[in-house]
Structure formats: C-alpha cells, structure tokens
C-alpha cells in the first residue's frame, strides 16, 4: 500500500470518528401527523422565534405546553388561527399555504427536541 493511500485511510478514519453534524440547540421536529399526511416533518427552530418573540407569547398566550409532543393540533387549527396560526396568518408571519417553509424536515425523523449542544437533552425527550 502506498503511503498516500495510508494517509488517505487515516483521514477517512478520522472523519468517521468526528461527531456528526447537528441541529441547532432546541430545534424541534414535529412529525405526529405530517408524514402520514404525505408532507415532510415540521422543523420548529426555537432560536429563530425567540429573537422575535419572548417564550411567554407561545407558551402562555397561545397555550403551547412546554413538552415536545404534548401539543396535539392539526393543520385545521392553524388555519383557524390557533397555535402557529396566531402569527402564521399572512399578517405577522407567512400564511399556512406556504407548506414547504415549515414542512422542511427529513423524512423518517421522530417528533422530538434536537440539537442538544452539550447535554444532549434528557433521555425522556
């Protein structure tokens, strides 16, 4: 084996050991219904939203419970102005007809909170 190939094998080995790419801290995947209905799972980025809204807007005013998977709502709720639909109405944020912007996740991902930067998040999530 040439030394070049050895070096290459070494590099590939190192790449394999390096950590996999990761989601941003507190990114949420919502896939209770999405894939069954034929669309991509929803990615909810906490970082994007908290720049624009304090936690209390969604978690007190809008009634989102603070546990991933505990908010059971449908697209029809959103269209009627509940949950995400309180802002995603074409007025404060894009309207629910922009399916792809929220339904942008990889297929097969289970509902959960992703992107634990260091702790990985408690096991129950």
């Amino acid at each position: 084996m040439s030394t070049w190939r050895l070096g290459l094998a070494f590099a590939v080995l190192l790449l394999g050991v390096m950590p996999p790419v990761s989601a941003e801290y507190a990114d949420v995947v919502l896939n209770r219904r999405a894939e069954k209905e034929g669309v991509r799972p929803v990615i909810f980025p906490h970082w994007f939203h908290r720049i624009r809204f304090r936690c209390k807007v969604c978690h007190a005013e809008l009634g989102f419970k603070m546990r991933v998977g505990s908010n059971d709502f449908k697209m029809s709720d959103i269209v009627d102005g509940r949950f995400c639909g309180a802002c995603h109405n074409g007025d404060i944020a894009w309207a629910p007809d922009r399916c792809d912007l929220c339904h942008s996740g990889k297929r097969g991902l289970p509902t959960g909170i992703y992107g634990g930067h260091e702790t990985g998040g408690p096991g129950r999530w």
């Binding site: 996999p20 790419v21 990761s22 989601a23 941003e24 990114d27 995947v29 991509r40 990615i43 994007f48 792809d100 912007l101 929220c102 339904h103 942008s104 996740g105 990889k106 297929r107 991902l109 992703y114 992107g115």
Partner: peptide, 14 residues
C-alpha cells in the same frame, strides 16, 4: 444540520 431535508425548497429561503 441533519434534520432539514437538503432537497427542500425552504433551504434557500429560511
């Protein structure tokens, strides 16, 4: 990032 579908049209807009 491992959770977004790289083929999703949203990637260019988000």
């Amino acid at each position: 990032d491992g959770i977004h579908d790289p083929r999703s049209p949203a990637i260019q807009q988000l």
